[in-house]
Nucleic acid binder design. Structure first.
Length: 269
DNA sequence: ATGGTTGCACGGCAA
């Protein structure tokens, strides 16, 4: 596999923000962009806009109006058979192969507001999704080959992945049942948390800031919801560039009508 | 303690 830069971005409507992706791509020059929350069907995806920005290859798994994931690439891309990991069969997951590397692109359910699966079916769905994901990834742990798992996992697992660990312990995305599940899943699948290996705690690392703050940068109530995990075959490639190989493109959060997530890039050398 | 904003699609839900 050659040197590659991988990007992941919850774009919150790809049709609305294709111009912002073009601007980001011109700055960051990623070879592959993994998108979540494209919020459209396959045939509504702006293929021509991506081809014009240098990404003629695309794999899209969409549904009407919500969720949806896509991978666009400079290099030829092969869509692989997705395994069933979403209990409700929503468009939240895809598998593709680029240059010998398998990419698993995920949009894990947010889970609603009430952190009790008995009274909140959305949280129940999130926990069921996580269970299915653990079983699936554990079963593939020892498969040879280069694999990355990326996307909006809607969980900030570590203390310094949120603006206030204490204040968020009962807030969905940072409850112990979720953070423990995510770490268990990552380890069961044989993946390393590459961004955190490059930017260790206690440094804060966020990729999402709510729309509901007047000044997101000033209040800085962020969370690290977007992740890039690499398996053993890619660990050295992810670490070789040091922390310069990892970047959260916070400037994109400042653009006019931004996504509430910032893109993350990781260089694999 | 509460409400704060956005996108889809055109009412209210999900985030």
């Amino acid at each position: 596999m050659r040197a590659l830069t991988l990007a992941t971005w919850n774009i919150n409507s790809v049709r609305l923000r294709a111009p912002q992706i073009a601007r980001f791509a011109a700055d960051a020059r990623p070879d592959i962009i993994c998108l979540q929350e494209i919020k459209c069907l396959e045939d509504q995806f702006p293929y021509a806009a991506f081809a014009a920005m240098g990404y003629p290859h695309a794999a899209v798994t969409g549904q009407k109006g919500m969720h949806g994931v896509a991978v666009v690439s400079r290099l030829p891309l092969e869509a692989l058979e997705p395994h069933k990991v979403c209990p409700k069969a929503e468009a939240r997951y895809q598998r593709v192969k680029v240059d010998g590397m398998e990419i698993l692109n995920f949009y894990i359910p947010a889970g609603g507001d009430e952190p009790d699966p008995v009274i909140n079916p959305r949280f129940r769905h999130k926990l069921d999704f996580l269970d299915a994901l653990e079983t699936y990834l554990a079963g593939r742990r020892d498969e040879p080959g280069a694999r990355v798992l990326v996307g909006d996992l809607n969980i900030a697992p570590l203390e310094h992945d949120v603006w206030s660990h204490k204040q968020l312990l009962k807030v969905i995305s940072h409850t112990p049942v979720e953070t423990e599940a995510l770490e268990r899943i990552r380890i069961a699948g044989g993946f390393a948390d590459a961004p955190r290996a490059l930017v260790p705690e206690p440094e804060k690392l966020f990729t999402w800031w709510s729309y509901r703050n007047r000044d997101w940068r000033k209040s800085n109530r962020g969370r690290r919801l977007d992740h890039i995990w690499v398996n053993g075959a890619l660990e050295a490639a992810a670490m070789s560039g040091g922390r310069a190989g990892l970047r959260v493109w916070e400037d994109c959060r400042d653009w006019d009508k931004p996504s509430d997530h910032a893109p993350v890039t990781l260089a694999l050398r």
